[in-house]
Amino acid sequence: MPSSKKKKETVPVMSMAGLIRYYEEENEKVKISPKIVIGASLALTIIVIVITKLF
């Protein structure tokens, strides 16, 4: 559907801590699951701790 035909509307926004972001439509090319984000964060932390201890 062309963008000009899209209905204009005011969507309630999340403005906690002063940031306005809209996530009602997605357009991202690279998508990852939340489990990967959690896993990657833990992995980074563990790697940094291990390297610090070893070297």
Partner: peptide
């Protein structure tokens, strides 16, 4: 740029 950055799925 934002489009091509990894993003969390809804």
């Amino acid at each position: 740029l934002g489009q091509y950055l990894p993003a969390v799925t809804k």
